[in-house]
Computed example of a mutant assay.
Amino acid sequence: MGRMDGKVVLVTGGARGLGANDCYEFAKEGADTIIIADIRKENMEETAAALRTEFGCTIVCRELDVTNEKQWELLVSEIDKMFGKLDVLVNNAGIVKRVTLLECTLEDWNNVIEVNQTGVFLGMKHCALLMKKSRNASIINISSIAGLTGYFAWPYTASKWAVRGMTQAAAMELSDWGIRVNSIHPGFTWTDLTSDVKDMLEGFSNAVALERYGKPEEIAKAVLFLASDESSFITGTELTVDGGLQAGGGLRYFTKQMGLYQTDH
């Protein structure tokens, strides 16, 4: 028996990166059906083919712009007709713009907020009624440690703080329907969104307690836990997966540099 046996799962931004790793974990744990929703058709088909070959599971690929409400309505209606339920929604689709307050244009702001915040809102809004049928459903919203700190990427940070708040509000509102809603806050992780700033990742590794950046599969395993019935009494929570950065990794690094933090006895 797998941890996801019998479950129908929808992952936005599931064509590559963190989303594709989520799909891999779900398939490995026996999910009945995985719906990959993304704007990258070619990447979707590649990921789906690989999962079908390795696990023999049902994979449905659908093009979805998470900012388009009509597309959400059509997708949820199709899932209802095909499967009659939706057990897990992973709001993973996101973009980043690394600009400071004074550098940020209104276009930068609107683009990031529309995908990262409005996309999550639309996903929860349009999937909730279908997920009600499960009576034991789970929504996982991918935020970031930027949603817990004052990270410099202005629109990105604002969007991830919003996801954190929306998650808690939704957890209260949807609890009567047996829908759990939680957010995951990855630290610096090697993904498609961060591949262009490898030097920054390696630099920040000094401020991580485990002294390295994260791997996509490590975030995916946290998503799997919140999607599975193992987390049946967890809702409205923020799961930080950052190697100890937010807990005080930066302070640890500087005190070690100053000779004040000794671990060898």
Rank of each mutant, 00 (worst) to 15 (best):
I234S: 06
D87R: 04
G178R: 02
L129F: 06
D22A: 10
A222T: 05
N141L: 00
M166H: 08
I34T: 13
R52Q: 09
R164S: 05
D32R: 15
Y261E: 05
W72S: 00
A146N: 05
M166F: 10
E230M: 15
F83M: 09
L245S: 14
L18I: 12
L260T: 01
F188M: 09
F225R: 08
K7S: 10
K85S: 13
G187W: 10
S231V: 00
L201K: 10
D199A: 13
V112H: 05
V88W: 12
G203Y: 13
I139F: 07
T157G: 11
V181R: 01
T255Y: 14
E107I: 14
C57Q: 06
I179A: 04
T167Q: 00
M4N: 04
V181M: 02
T149F: 07
E73S: 06
W72F: 01
K7T: 15
V66S: 08
R98T: 06
H126G: 00
G236D: 03
A27L: 09
I79F: 07
G56V: 02
R3P: 12
A37F: 01
L74I: 00
N43G: 06
L239Q: 08
D242I: 09
M82T: 11
R3N: 10
D32Q: 11
Q257T: 06
S143I: 00
A227P: 11
N111E: 14
L174N: 13
K215W: 05
N182S: 06
V223C: 07
N141S: 04
K85P: 03
G165F: 07
T157F: 10
M82Y: 08
F225Y: 15
